[in-house]
């Protein structure tokens, strides 16, 4: 059974159909990529899954549980967390605090416990600190623990976002262009990290990415969106050789042929 099950989802903004009748399935413990030219509706698609937008029609289920109608924070609780195309860390907080914030959703003490400083509250704070350390270690950012999040190097800020998302103990993590702005070495590190997320933590990964080398070597399955509709899907080599995909990326004619050669090389 698939972990995430998106059935015939459509979302329009005024006259624009941003996501058009998309069906999308994510098997448990898989690494799936969503690709497509700019403006294809990829981020809108993530926003529909995470509850920022409500689809006009269609169904979204996580492990059989209906997600439509849930607020974003309830979707996180259900087990989906994400990172952002443009980094959205909390700048006034340290790396550790950012992760502790993400942990909040799994803690049981209420706000009154915080005000009254009950033992439950203290236990939870300690748990949040422990989780933060564990996650910083996992993504390799331990040395930045007490630094303000925005003082981290760019590539590390992306990793910190991943750590924060992981701290919510998700079943599924959505990564929106995780390699954007990274140099080839950082991208290699990222690839290893994403594999570790799946292999060591057992978290299913869906990523939006433009770095084709990363997508092709990392993904087990690829879905291609274009103008809001699903254009193609399949195994990496299938998608790479799909003429419709080449056309969407590069237009008709010889250019597509050139791309095909390059991609093969």
């Amino acid at each position: 059974m698939s972990l995430l099950d998106v059935q015939n989802v459509t979302k329009t903004f005024g006259g624009l159909t941003a996501v058009n009748d998309v069906t999308f399935q994510v098997p448990e413990r898989s690494i799936i990529s969503v690709i497509g030219p700019n403006g294809a509706g990829k981020t809108t698609f993530f926003n529909l899954i995470t509850g920022i937008y409500t689809p006009d029609t269609g169904n979204i289920k996580l492990g059989g549980r209906e997600l439509i109608g849930l607020r974003p924070d309830q979707v996180v609780e259900a087990g989906i967390s994400r990172t952002f195309q443009n980094i959205r860390l909390f700048p006034s907080m340290t790396a550790e605090e950012n992760i502790m914030l993400g942990r909040g959703v799994r803690l049981k003490s209420g706000y009154w416990d915080a005000i009254l400083r009950s033992s439950k509250f203290k236990h939870d704070e300690q748990e949040a600190v422990d989780t933060a350390r564990l996650m910083l270690d996992f993504v390799g950012l331990s040395k930045w623990r007490n630094e303000l999040s925005t003082s981290l190097p760019y590539g590390d800020q992306r990793k910190l976002e991943i750590a924060r998302a992981l701290a919510t103990t998700p079943k599924l993590i959505l990564l929106d262009e995780p390699a954007a702005g990274m140099n080839p070495r950082e991208t290699e590190d990222l690839k290893a990290l994403i594999r570790a997320i799946r292999d060591e933590l057992g978290v299913t990964v869906v990523l939006i990415e433009h770095d084709m080398r990363l997508v092709m070597t990392l993904s087990e399955y690829i879905t291609v969106l274009n103008y809001g509709s699903k254009l193609s899907e399949g195994l990496p080599h299938e998608v790479r050789n799909d003429p419709a995909v080449m056309e969407a990326y590069l237009g008709r004619g010889t250019a597509a042929g050139e791309y095909g050669k390059e991609a093969q090389a």
Binding site: F90, M100, L101, G104, L107, Y111
Partner: peptide, 20 residues
């Protein structure tokens, strides 16, 4: 945690929501 949540909402309500 409440304080962190208040600071997060103050900075960016949407992102705070997406962090649960």
């Amino acid at each position: 945690r409440l304080g962190r949540a208040i600071r997060a909402v103050a900075h960016d309500r949407q992102t705070a929501g997406l962090m649960g």
